[in-house]
Design a protein around this nucleic acid. Structure first.
Ligand SMILES: [Mn+2]
Ligand SMILES: [Mn+2]
Ligand SMILES: [Zn+2]
Ligand SMILES: [Zn+2]
Lengths: 137, 137
DNA sequence: ATAATTGATGCAATGGAAGTGCAATTATTA
DNA sequence: TAATAATTGCACTTCCATTGCATCAATTAT
């Protein structure tokens, strides 16, 4: 079990207070967050710093981007040992139409999708919308 | 085989020159188009009119919206007899990473996606990215 | 036919999110 | 300590989506 510091160092990312805070924030949430979610959580910090921090995380496969169709990009921590950079490792995302939260269903791998002759599938984005467990209870 | 006029009238949408032109434009294209694609095709017309026309079409299930992950909303005509408003009729979309075109693969229905207990699936967005038939040839 | 009403269009402005240039600050290395 | 490199903050920009309001056109009522 790596510490956050070790994780960052292993990817040659300098350990800064901001990066640790944002990482912890993401780790505590179990849902995908937008940049403005982060912004609201860290009002003292500048938006650009938050933006660049999350981009640094993204480039280094610490978080992955989620396009859930709301038009606003969301981010979530990659799982231990996930291979978000490798096309076939993609998992399913669920967007709740009631509470508007988006979560990673990391257990649910995306089924193989057949495409017509001549088409080459490189990667797949699958978002299921509906009512989440908390809202359907 | 309905004329465009009949289609519009059947949905209580007034037949205007602009609406006919935009409908024909969409019908000629076999790919999904952005608002600025339409804008470029009708430089004399105002963007707002084009925008509202497409929104009118969307509300009346004449076109459907496609979120292919490029960040820009695209639109395509609904098929004859399609039920885009009914959740299970959704089809697959393919986005080409080479030519950047997005097309409807209307023949390819989305497989049933299982979600965990407590979750209710209402609708699914599935976008496959890769190389299209024209670009892979 | 004319007036009243409703809807369509055009212009201007707004808002939100994403992204960039540059200067200032902070951390690392020489 | 000095030189260097990376991070942060501020201001600004761009792009797309959306709205308010005035005007214009079409439909309906008188
Ligand atoms: Mn995820
Ligand atoms: Mn389609
Ligand atoms: Zn919910
Ligand atoms: Zn292509």
């Amino acid at each position: 079990m790596k510490t956050i510091e070790q994780l960052l160092e292993s990817k040659n990312i300098r350990v800064t207070a901001m990066r640790l805070l944002i990482y912890k924030f993401l780790a505590e949430k179990e849902i995908a967050v937008t940049l403005s979610d982060i912004e609201n959580a860290f009002e003292k910090a500048d938006r650009t710093t938050l933006y660049r921090t999350i981009k640094t995380f993204e480039e280094n496969v610490i978080v992955h981007q989620i396009d859930d169709g709301t038009g606003i990009t969301k981010y979530a921590l990659c799982e231990e040992g996930c291979n978000c950079d490798i096309k076939n490792d993609l998992h399913l995302h669920f967007h709740c139409n009631n509470c508007n939260e988006t979560i990673c269903l990391t257990e649910h791998k995306i089924p193989q999708i057949k495409v017509p002759d001549g088409f080459v599938s490189e990667n797949v984005n699958l978002v299921v919308k509906g009512i989440c467990d908390k809202c359907s209870g």
